[in-house]
């Protein structure tokens, strides 16, 4: 095995925050140094070794064996390297990440990839609320990179998204892309109410037109060259868009003077 592996000694009794413990940080440390590194756990801070078996050889890869829904901040602040979680993670996975790859085998809690600016997150399961969104107090959600959600996404995914790409293979919850500033989000499944509310710019790709706020205006179906371009240039969207030559273009949120669009394949 290459890289460092963290294997929880037992299910966590409180939330553990791994923010900042990224491959580029663990890489230069010896196993012993890593074991002594303190991480917040509930109301205390504990040494990593009190929570995990720390094994392997430090390099650019970090592996978390057996996830835990109380494990927050996995890959938060990552700039390079690779972080793989075999199971489920808690909140803020990949928050503020600017590079590298984060792969999560299970589900993720709230704020997955929030304020992310680069790199790639691949989530196999479902994401909680606010995936790719702006965290509390932050002005912008995901502004670059790719966030791929294999399952469903909770409410307010892509809120205040500023750029980059979010793909949701399953359903998206209420308030998708609320206040979206720019960027692209695609949803394979159904979409909850009030998607795109207050959206300024950006694109939401959908298979069927969802219920949209009053400020959205249907401009009809159009043959769009851009669809062909995106289908070829963006591998993450090829499967969804490759059959599309025409799309229904619904522009909004005009109530706020927005020029975003919902594009639905026809």
């Amino acid at each position: 095995m290459t890289g460092v592996s963290l294997k929880p000694r037992a299910p966590f009794e409180a939330r553990v925050d791994l923010s900042g413990l990224t491959p580029e940080v663990t890489g230069p440390l010896s196993l012993r140094e890593l074991e002594h590194r303190e991480v917040p756990c509930g109301g205390r801070s504990l040494k990593l070794a009190e929570l995990f078996f720390v094994e392997g050889a430090p390099d650019g890869v970090l592996l978390v064996e057996i996830g835990d829904a109380r494990l927050d901040g996995v890959g938060a602040g990552m700039t390079r390297g690779e972080l793989i979680v075999d199971g489920t993670v808690g909140a803020f996975a990949g928050r503020g990440m600017s590079g590298g790859v984060l792969r999560i085998g299970g589900d993720a809690g709230d704020f997955l990839g929030s304020e992310m600016s680069g790199g790639r997150i691949e989530l196999a399961g479902n994401a909680g609320a606010h995936a790719g969104a702006a965290g509390s107090g932050a002005r912008r959600g995901l502004s670059g990179g790719v966030l791929q959600i294999g399952g469903h996404a909770g409410p307010r995914a892509a809120e205040r998204q500023r750029g980059g790409l979010i793909t949701i293979a399953g359903d998206a919850g209420e308030g998708l892309a609320t206040g979206m500033i720019a960027g692209t989000v695609s949803v394979g499944g159904t979409i909850g109410p009030l998607a795109g509310r207050g959206m300024k710019r950006g694109t939401i790709f959908v298979n069927a037109v969802p219920e949209l706020p009053a400020g959205f205006i249907d401009t009809g179906a159009h043959e769009l060259v851009a669809l062909r371009l995106i289908a070829r240039r963006v591998p993450e969207l090829s499967a969804m868009l490759s059959g599309w030559t025409h799309a229904r273009r619904i522009v909004g949120d005009t109530l706020m003077g927005g020029q975003g669009e919902v594009l639905a394949g026809v």
């Binding site: 925050d17 917040p40 909140a91 803020f92 709230d110 606010h130 965290g135 509390s136 107090g137």
Partner: peptide
């Protein structure tokens, strides 16, 4: 240390 989050 202290950290803040309006949701968590």
């Amino acid at each position: 240390t202290s950290s803040h989050d309006g949701t968590l």
